[in-house]
Simulated assay, not measured.
Amino acid sequence: MRVEIWSDIVCPWCYIGKRRFERALAGFPHADEVEVVWRSFQLNPDHPKGARVPLEESLAAKMGATVEQVRAMNARVKAIAAEEGLEYDFDRYNVVNTFDAHRLTHLAKAYDLNAELHERFLRAQLVEGEVLDDPDTLVRLAAEVGVPEAEARRVLESDDFAAEVEADSAELRALGGNGVPFFVIDRRFGISGAQPTEVFERALAMAHEAATQESSSSR
C-alpha cells in the first residue's frame, strides 16, 4: 500500500492531519506494508520571496476579517492542535514563501530523510517560531535530521528540485485537489483535510481490503 500526502510545511492543519494519520497508521495491523510518500504543495505560491508577514495580519487581509476575528479563529486551531500534543505559537508565526523549503524536502529524499525533514520544518514553523525562508535556518534544520549542510546550501543557491516541487503541485490539481493536507491511498481513496483519526483508520482498512481482493482475483 502507498499513501501519498500533499502538505505545506507551514500549514497548521497539515501538522494536525499528520498526527491523526500517524495515530491511525500506528494502530493499523498491516502498517508494515504501507509506504508513506510526502509531496509538496504551497498554500501561498504567490507570496513574494523574502516577505515576512505576521500570521494574523496576513489572514485578516486574505479573509477580509478583523484581527480580532482571526485571533479567535487561531485560538480554536491552537486548541485542536493541543489535543494532538502540538503547542502552536502563532505569535511568532510569519507567513513566508515556502518554495525553497520544499526544494530541500526533495533533496532529503535522496538521503531517505524526507519524512524527517517534513516533520522538522512543521515543528520549526508552528511550534518554535522559526522563519522558513531564511537560508541559514533552512540549512541548519536540514542538517539536524541528517541532510549534509554543504549539499543543502548548494541546492538553495541553485534551481535544483524546482521542477519537482512544481510537479507535485500540478499532480494534486490533476487529481482534483486544491488544498492541503490531502491524502491519497493507492490512488484509490482520497481524503481531504485533517480528518478525525477514525476516517484514516477506515480508509486504510478499505484500501487494504481492495488491494487484497484485487490480488486474489488476478491469480
Rank of each mutant, 00 (worst) to 15 (best):
A82Q: 14
A82V: 05
G85F: 08
G85C: 04
R92W: 10
N94M: 13
N97P: 10
T98V: 06
F99H: 05
F99W: 07
D100I: 09
A101C: 09
A108R: 01
K109I: 11
A110T: 15
Y111I: 00
Y111V: 02
L113I: 11
L113D: 11
E116Y: 00
E119T: 00
R120G: 05
R123T: 12
V127G: 06
E128S: 07
E128R: 09
G129V: 04
D134W: 09
D134K: 15
T137S: 09
T137G: 03
L138Y: 08
L138C: 12
L138V: 09
V139E: 00
L141K: 01
A143Q: 09
A143V: 05
G146F: 07
V147N: 03
P148R: 03
A152K: 12
A152F: 13
R154D: 04
L156R: 09
S158L: 11
A162G: 10
A162W: 05
A163Y: 02
S169D: 00
E171G: 05
E171Q: 14
A174P: 03
G176M: 14
G176V: 15
G177Q: 07
F183S: 00
V184N: 02
I185S: 07
R187V: 04
R187G: 09
R187Y: 04
R188M: 11
G193T: 02
P196A: 01
P196N: 06
E198T: 07
E198K: 04
A203M: 08
A205Y: 03
M206H: 04
H208C: 03
A210R: 06
A210T: 06
T212Y: 01
T212Q: 03
E214G: 14
S215T: 10
